[in-house]
Nucleic acid binder design. Structure first.
Lengths: 141, 141
DNA sequence: ATAGGTTCCGTACCATGGTACGGAGTCAAG
DNA sequence: CTTGACTCCGTACCATGGTACGGAACCTAT
């Protein structure tokens, strides 16, 4: 039984975020707020466990996948639920968005690669930043 | 001589943004604010040209490449300038960031792909959202 | 020449995802 | 049993990138 328990500070470090960020996620309802543990009468401190660490890591990964915190909240509810169709829908939507985004970034990357090359030569050809991006017009956000 | 001129509304449409966004970019110093053109005595309206359209499109592409508006401002200054080293540096930094980001998104994509597959079956195996993201821990932003 | 659509401009407000502050309470080591 | 670090909580503030509002001026077509 390794039922180690963490303080909020340890949880934060385990997830690579700040304490304030944990509290923020709690306010957003993404992480539960355990009850205070301590001798009766004194307030005590809230204690977290592995489950919370996993939850936190999930949040960070899902963010990296481009989900908003609101969507992440929905995913968390879905995880414990039965609505597979909705889960699938969210996943597919995100995949489509990722495909677009990845294509955009790939395009941007090659533009930059060429730009860096052109700007390498001490003199000679110019290094025209604005012109470099002409043509492949992708929209941001 | 096709020196067509645009009103701000046309410029906005040409760039696929709203009028307010143009004004915002002007406030940020990313797009110039031409002087009002009109019969002496009357205010007249500001008129834009192809150069502005190109500038605007550049801004959108550079945003898609992950540059912040502040960096885009720097790029614009650099474009008309001589500091090739700095231009190169910005490009290379961004390429590195893009490489990381693209890798993250690729990872996220395959996680989601698998998740969508698992959540497809009507019954049988579960569709464990949180668990799906375990392992490849990438940080957001 | 008048109506309706634009433009101009300042200022306010918005969403997202945090980060900081500050006072009071709690905990752990020496 | 004190001292220093950490926690708790409410509230305020921040950066980024816009979006909205509203009145006055302006421009264009009828």
């Amino acid at each position: 039984m390794t039922t180690a328990s963490y303080t909020i500070g340890w949880l934060a470090r385990a997830g690579g975020v700040g304490v304030e960020t944990i509290r923020y996620y709690q306010r957003r309802g993404l992480i539960e707020t355990p009850s205070r543990q301590g001798p009766a009468g004194s307030g005590g401190v809230r204690r977290y466990d592995e489950k919370d660490v996993r939850r936190l890591r999930f949040i960070r990964s899902a963010q990296a996948a481009g989900f908003t915190l609101e969507q992440i909240g929905e995913l968390i509810e879905l995880d414990a639920g039965k609505d597979r169709a909705r889960a699938r829908e969210l996943a597919k939507e995100r995949i489509a968005a990722l495909d677009e985004k990845i294509a955009d970034l790939d395009r941007a990357r090659s533009v930059l690669k060429k730009l860096a090359r052109d700007c390498a030569s001490q003199a000679g050809n110019p290094c025209p930043i604005l012109a470099a991006f002409e043509g492949p017009g992708s929209r941001p956000r």
